[in-house]
């Protein structure tokens, strides 16, 4: 599996898109720091971008890689390698190269700006960790879509829809339900709804860590009570892990039974 990972990783690291992605974050980091002149503020702006952009890139990159490496996969399938290793290796190759671009693209400008001397270092690390998680989750979801859909156009369509749903529509539905059911106690509902969407979960985690939950009003207080405690933090970490593990498990499960 490590060999496949290595080859997928190298393959991606040499592709133009990895550079574009890396340079984009590099520029974003520098521009934000230049405009904000403050690490903490830059982290907040960055969060808003990362929360939406990372899932999008993870999904599109994942699905593109899957479809483009069809020949590579078929070549590997005839070799004495178990299928699990082939798909896990490719998945980890894609996810790790994206994470690599994210961490270095953002890390370099912030480190140059003096991240290590500011107190925002933990907030920034949390941002990168959730960014990495989001990459892992959405790449895995994209692999699932690609493996279940032979038709590329359909696959791309589903992938974009998935991203749109998680990043945009879900919040809309969430808000509408909060308005409709405002007469009822919604604390548990909103916590559950947040936990069930990795994008919302990441956003909430970062906002709470940044201590600007007051912006969230009453809900913020409820969240603060839940996520602020150790139990809440553990639960959200577990949820993010589950969000990673389950799609990866399904990907391997389907790949083992698929015809090529």
């Amino acid at each position: 599996m490590l060999k496949i990972l290595k080859y997928s990783f190298y393959d991606l690291m040499r592709s133009r898109w990895s550079y574009v992605y890396f340079l984009f974050y590099l520029m974003l980091g520098f521009v934000l720091l230049f405009l904000n002149n403050d690490v903490s503020k830059a982290v907040i702006t960055l969060m808003n971008i990362i929360i939406v952009l990372v899932p999008l890139i993870g999904t599109i990159f994942g699905i593109m890689y899957c479809y483009n490496s069809k020949e590579f996969t078929e070549l590997l399938l005839a070799q004495p390698i178990p299928r699990r290793s082939i798909f896990l290796g490719q998945y980890l190759g894609v996810a790790s190269s994206l994470t690599f671009s994210l961490i270095f693209g953002l890390g370099i400008p912030f480190v140059l700006y003096g991240l290590f001397m500011s107190d925002a270092i933990f907030d920034f690390s949390l941002l990168l960790v959730t960014g990495a998680f989001l990459t892992l989750i959405f790449t895995a979801l994209a692999f699932n879509i690609a493996i279940s859909n032979e038709n590329r156009i359909m696959g791309f369509g589903y992938a974009v829809l998935l991203w749109l749903f998680m990043a945009v529509i879900y919040d809309g539905l969430f808000l509408i339900s909060l308005v409709i059911f405002e007469e009822y106690p919604l604390d548990n509902f909103s916590i559950a709804a947040t936990l069930l969407n990795p994008v919302d979960l990441s956003r909430t985690l970062i906002l709470l860590k940044l201590d600007i939950s007051a912006l969230l009003g009453y809900t913020g207080a409820v969240f603060k009570q839940f996520f602020g405690t150790n139990a809440g933090l553990v639960i959200s970490a577990v949820m993010l892990l589950l969000w990673t593990i389950f799609p990866v498990w399904r990907m391997v499960y389907v790949a083992k039974r698929k015809d090529f």
Partner: peptide, 8 residues
């Protein structure tokens, strides 16, 4: 492909 295990 069945012989190769690519098709199940």
């Amino acid at each position: 492909k069945c012989l190769l295990g690519m098709v199940i």
